[in-house]
């Protein structure tokens, strides 16, 4: 399924040890060839982010302007990627739609990471009652079927960009909390931490000065995976008509709109589908690359 837990399943199901099974392949690779995936992915994501930020200044058609040529096929001319069933420029809608995907991918993930890491580290450092309370909360969040939870949440809060980001962030918190907790526990016993404690450092100081940097390494590699998962989750909601309200374009909404004319005009579905594909693909390749790098470093 297209939920957060879906793409981080391996991270969750493996017991909280620092060295996850995923990190193992890095131990040794024979005849490793040059991997173009990560740099290409970075380029694509760069384009998407820049496009999303600068959309207003780019020479694009108004994404909400109802045109007079409907479902036009992509081609050179007024509309490079064609028009949708209401005659709106698809390229423009895709670029503006990237705002939603990026707001969710970057915003919700960052929010989830901050909250998740804070809770996870607190749980792993203090253990005891703090740990059990936080773990209970994390387990509670995870026990909800993710998409059902989102659908109910969106129905309750009315769809808006802010609410979407908040809801998706909530969904991402457990993943970060678990990995942060596991790594805090692992590092808390190391000499540099015990030494710092012995010197009378406050817990806050130990957590931020000594532990945070070490915990962040594995968290960063998880981050890209969660970004991909949240972009997909937002797409799923928009596809169900529960995303940002129209006329604001979103890739999932474009897919849903185009479905009714998919037979005659497959591009209505294929183009937003391709944007999803490339974006998630890019996140994944970068994630693989980051995991490889971080795996090597942490195994040193």
């Amino acid at each position: 399924m297209t939920d957060v837990v879906g793409h981080t399943g391996s991270a969750l199901s493996v017991p909280p040890t620092v060295k996850s099974a995923d990190a193992a392949p890095v131990v040794k690779r024979r005849r490793r060839r040059r991997d173009y995936g990560a740099p290409l992915g970075a380029v694509w994501l760069g384009l998407v982010v820049v496009g999303a930020i600068t959309a207003d200044w780019l020479p694009l058609a108004d994404p909400n302007e109802i045109g007079n040529v409907f479902s036009a096929t992509p081609g050179l001319g007024d509309h490079l990627l064609g028009t949708d069933i209401l005659g709106r420029d698809i390229l423009s809608r895709c670029v503006y739609g990237a705002r939603i995907s990026m707001a969710v991918g970057l915003g919700a993930t960052a929010l989830a990471m901050v909250v998740g890491v804070a809770f996870g580290m607190a749980a792993g450092y203090f253990r005891g009652a703090v740990d059990s309370t936080i773990s209970l909360f994390v387990n509670f969040l995870m026990a909800f079927p993710p998409l059902m939870f989102l659908i109910a949440l969106v129905a309750a809060m009315r769809p808006s960009l802010t609410n979407l980001v908040l809801g998706l962030a909530l969904l991402g918190i457990p993943n970060f909390a678990r990995i942060a907790r596991a790594n805090t526990i692992a590092f808390a016993e190391r000499e540099f931490v015990t030494a710092s404690k012995a010197l009378g450092a406050s817990p806050f100081r130990v957590l931020t000065r000594e532990l945070l940097a070490n915990v962040m390494l594995p968290v960063m590699s998880l981050m890209l995976v969660v970004m991909a998962a949240l972009v997909v989750a937002e797409g799923s909601l928009s596809f169900l008509g529960l995303g940002v309200p129209p006329p604001t374009p979103s890739w999932g909404g474009m897919l849903a709109d185009g479905r009714s004319q998919m037979n005659e005009h497959p591009h209505l579905v294929m183009i937003p589908g391709l944007f999803f594909f490339l974006t998630v693909f890019a996140f994944n390749r970068l994630g693989d690359w980051a995991r490889g790098r971080i795996g090597r470093e942490s195994s040193l």
Binding site: I85, G241, P246, P247, A256, R259, S260
Partner: peptide, 15 residues
Amino acid sequence: SPAPIMKQVGEVVAA
């Protein structure tokens, strides 16, 4: 909201 056609029609009229 549950009907895509109604959403699209709404978008046109609003525009």
